[in-house]
Design a protein around this nucleic acid. Structure first.
Length: 340
DNA sequence: AATTTGAGCAACCGCGGAAGA
DNA sequence: CTCTTCCGCGGTTGCTCAAAT
């Protein structure tokens, strides 16, 4: 017995929205808001649409301050940096780009940015990494690192060798040309990206901040929550991050400072990160969940170390006293980003 | 000029989680 | 607790249009 459909599929219109539908929806929401109930909204607004469809239309197209069109270089950098850090958590990435929607960013990544990076990546790094086939390993939960394997445009080259670009590779190969020499502050100032990479030709791996064996920021996944009005909360002061969203591929250190870089992602005094989850404590202190993860991480490290790149890009919480705090009230449940 | 191919984008689908009954 | 409902997210599909053949 399956789940009941969210709406009567037979009586809802699908496909592209007409201008009339758009204005009906827009007028209604501007007048009455969403009422916190998308399912009931279409009927009230006189639309023969599924509530989810209305929500999507509003969030991606109709709500105010939506930005369409070309992405700027800065936006590229932010997307790349965050993708490197958290993977395909488009809503979180979108939260850092005011006016952009997750759908927009996702499409942009899949259709343009990925290729752009691919074109810039050195040939030697375009081969598929030696990760085990998903068919050989138990499926990982969604929102886990597995998403990084399987996403990126729907067809993942580990499964199909036809494509040379992988969803994973950009993580380690984002060219420096997409990163400025200067620090890139996100619009919200909630995260701070700092690149000390050199100009011009890029070096592979520099997008991924290698930072020694036990210090690889590989995705401290944050959770983004869009409210019903469509404004996505930012990763910012006091923003909550669910435990599971932190991702087992978060490599967290109390702080690290290299010659050209500073990294500070610290956590509060309540619990150690290794206690956040029954994640496996790896011999080198990194955190993983399954042998697959461990392999992945090792492979990432390998990729990084093989690059010899010494350029530094800090993704997440660089030198601006940013802290990752554990909220004791939600012991092992919630983590808070707090920026000072 | 007709057909094919590919890119870009909007929209849909299904799942997981949260909240409330 | 358990069940139901709804929301939000990420992945995927399918349409449109332009470029290539």
């Amino acid at each position: 017995m399956g789940r009941a459909p969210c709406c009567d599929k037979a009586n809802v219109k699908k496909g592209p929205w007409s201008p009339e539908e758009d204005s009906k929806l827009k007028d209604y929401i501007e007048k009455y808001g969403t009422g916190g109930n998308w399912i009931a909204l279409p009927q009230k607004a006189g639309l023969k649409r599924c509530g989810k469809s209305c929500r999507l239309r509003w969030l991606n197209y109709l709500r105010p301050n939506i930005k369409h069109g070309e992405f700027s270089d800065d936006e590229d950098r932010i997307i790349c940096s965050l993708f490197a850090s958290i993977g395909s958590r488009w809503s979180i990435i979108a939260a850092q780009l005011p006016g952009r929607t997750d759908n927009d960013i996702k499409n942009y990544w899949n259709t343009k940015l990925k290729k752009k990076l691919m074109a810039m990546a050195p040939q030697s790094h375009r081969k598929p990494p030696p990760f085990p086939s998903p068919h050989q390993t138990p499926p990982l939960p969604s929102h886990s690192l597995s998403s990084i394997y399987k996403d990126c445009g729907g067809s993942f080259p580990y499964y199909s060798q036809n494509k040379s670009f992988t969803g994973f590779e950009p993580i380690s190969q984002v060219p420096s040309s997409l990163l400025s020499n200067n620090s890139v502050s996100l619009a919200t100032n909630s995260l701070h990206f700092q690149s000390t990479g050199q100009e011009g030709l890029f070096s592979p791996m520099q997008y991924y901040q290698p930072v020694k064996d036990n210090f690889l920021v590989f995705g401290s996944e944050a959770s983004c929550s869009s409210n019903s009005e469509g404004s996505c909360s930012q990763i910012s002061y006091g923003r909550e991050i669910k435990q599971e969203d932190m991702g087992f591929h978060s490599f967290i250190s109390n702080g690290y400072e290299d010659q050209n870089q500073k990294f500070m992602l610290s956590y509060g005094n309540s619990i150690g990160v290794e206690n956040l989850n029954p994640w496996v404590e790896k011999p080198n202190g990194s955190i993983g969940e399954t042998p697959l993860d461990y392999d992945l991480i090792e492979d990432v490290k390998q990729l990084i170390s093989s690059s010899g790149a010494n350029n530094n890009v800090n993704v997440c919480c660089s030198n601006s006293n940013d802290h990752l705090l554990i909220d004791e009230n939600k012991t092992q449940e919630k983590v808070m980003y707090s920026y000072y």
